[in-house]
Write a protein that binds this DNA or RNA. Structure first.
Lengths: 109, 109
DNA sequence: ACATCATATAAGTGCCTACTTATATATCTC
DNA sequence: GAGATATATAAGTAGGCACTTATATGATGT
């Protein structure tokens, strides 16, 4: 479980940054080249590359070179550790959320 | 959608820190007082309180005073923005993950 | 070979954050 | 009320991180 939590750290860290999450969300709509990502966001090209490197290290995206361009896309199984982390407490959510779904709002205050 | 993403920011930020995630995981096993959390982790009591304040601000936990102790517990509906964020790309996951569940490993390399 | 385009890496900088110690606030006991 | 316990807040600090500009690497076209 040590390895898993290290990966979880990297995934949570990668998704914690708004710019990185925005880039990731862009990629969920399909493969995008770095230059196109750079055009979409108001940060420099190196900043985009650095974010992509972080996402890649976390296993959330993959890269593919085609000529001069490098296309990034989401690596679907990369989300698994995040989903695993959530579903690790699935029993808890089930017990508290699903069963008392309609009462959640009143529970909050 | 602006409000939602602000909350998402706070949740991802809150869960990005390993200590904070460990504290949160402790709370999923039931209500715990601050002093007991302080005993469990190798950080100071103020550090624990600060982490709890961050989790609380993100809507992930709630506090209840009983005498001198303050008991923290998970706020179940606090996870909703995170689950919403993931399920926002549910179609994507469905397409790539669920349908090709057995092929994920081979897809990775 | 050279110029251009696309991306990554290096190096530097300012801000954020996670921690610390010290102190304030709140509750209980005597 | 005084002291003890439990927690929160204040203030300071060191390290990390997200950005920048500058430069290196790599591919294409002429």
């Amino acid at each position: 479980m040590q390895r898993a939590s290290v990966i979880q750290n990297e995934i949570f860290h990668a998704l914690a940054d708004p710019s990185r999450r925005a880039i990731f969300e862009s990629l969920t709509r399909g493969e995008v080249a770095v230059k196109d990502l750079t055009a979409r966001f108001d940060i420099s090209q190196p900043a985009v590359s650095q974010h992509l490197a972080t996402l890649k290290k976390a296993g959330l995206v993959r890269a593919r070179r085609e000529g001069r361009c490098i296309y990034y896309r989401v690596r679907p199984s990369g989300m698994k550790p995040l989903i695993d982390w959530i579903s690790h407490y699935r029993a808890f959510w089930t017990e508290h959320v699903e069963r008392l779904e309609q009462l959640l709002e009143t529970m909050d205050e």
